[in-house]
């Protein structure tokens, strides 16, 4: 019994220590945002890597999800003669939930893993030490540009994802389900409220910070060797995905039930 309690206690302490380390890491990142020097070139590069190169995967994910959502709502709505709500439910579903969450998870898969693997490899090949000897703080040079890029570019990606998702529903609705194109768009526009869009973009910004921060954190704290890089990459994606889903719940609660 005592052994079991000790194991639970050790687990809880480990979790709290990890949270503490992560909080300090986040605080240090923020502190670098207000202290020069700033690495503009690295920031622009991160914007392109996180934002521009993620557009195809975000677009395809949103397109197929919007289309599938339209089919599901139509089939489900048919059970109680509510097929006409397809445009409204696709819009609200994509903008409030599926857009931000799926884009967040796709970014966790594509960007978080890439950042963690890159920084972890830099660590095991002494590139982080080399940065220090070249009078360059790795947190300022590697972490801050990526986290800032995540914060700024993710709302844009989520906005693009929302639009393409709605367009996916529109395509299925007008081509397969017999909706009038103009009426579909009118219903979509009428039903969405500013709060829906604000919540969607806010979620995007928060998820962007989580995804990039987790990649940097796990990369910087990687163990040695190929196994260390692998563990860091896997851990970063799992942590980012779980935190994004948890943050989504908290933000939904904040925006729509408070």
């Amino acid at each position: 019994m005592i052994r079991l309690l000790a194991a639970i206690g050790a687990g809880v302490l480990g979790l709290l220590a990890g949270l503490g380390r992560l909080t300090l890491f986040a605080a240090e990142t923020v502190s670098h945002a207000v202290r020069p020097p700033f690495y503009g070139r690295e920031f622009l590069n991160a914007l392109v890597q996180v934002g521009y190169f993620s557009l195809p995967v975000v677009g395809l994910t949103a397109l197929f999800t919007g289309g599938a959502l339209a089919l599901q709502i139509y089939a489900g709505g048919a059970r109680f003669s509510a097929e006409a709500v397809v445009p409204q439910i696709v819009a609200i579903g994509m903008v409030r939930e599926l857009g931000p969450v799926l884009v967040g998870l796709m970014i966790a898969a594509r960007v978080t893993s890439s950042i963690a693997a890159e920084i972890a490899t830099m660590k095991v090949t002494e590139q982080l030490d080399a940065l220090v000897t070249l009078s360059t703080n790795p947190m300022k040079y590697l972490t801050l540009p990526r986290v800032l890029a995540g914060l700024l570019v993710m709302p844009v990606l989520v906005g693009v994802g929302d639009i393409i998702g709605i367009y996916g529903g529109y395509l299925v609705g007008t081509r397969s389900l017999g909706f009038n194109a103009a009426a579909y768009l009118q219903n979509t526009a009428d039903f969405l409220e500013p709060l829906d869009i604000i919540s969607s973009l806010t979620k995007g910004a928060v998820f962007g910070v989580i995804a990039t921060l987790m990649g940097c954190y796990y990369g910087m704290h990687s163990d040695r060797g190929a196994m260390g890089v692998g563990r860091a990459t896997k851990g970063s994606v799992v942590a980012a995905a779980v935190l994004i889903l948890a943050a989504n719940f908290l933000l939904t609660n904040l925006f729509f039930t408070a």
Binding site: M122, T125, E126, A130, T133, T136
Partner: peptide, 27 residues
């Protein structure tokens, strides 16, 4: 200080000249 690391520790994402001139491009 200058330091030559065991494995070179060159930055993969930068071309050779930017690796060499790293300190001269910032700070």
């Amino acid at each position: 200080f200058g330091m030559l690391f065991q494995g070179g520790a060159l930055f993969d994402s930068l071309p050779v000249w930017q690796n060499v001139a790293f300190r001269l491009l910032r700070g």
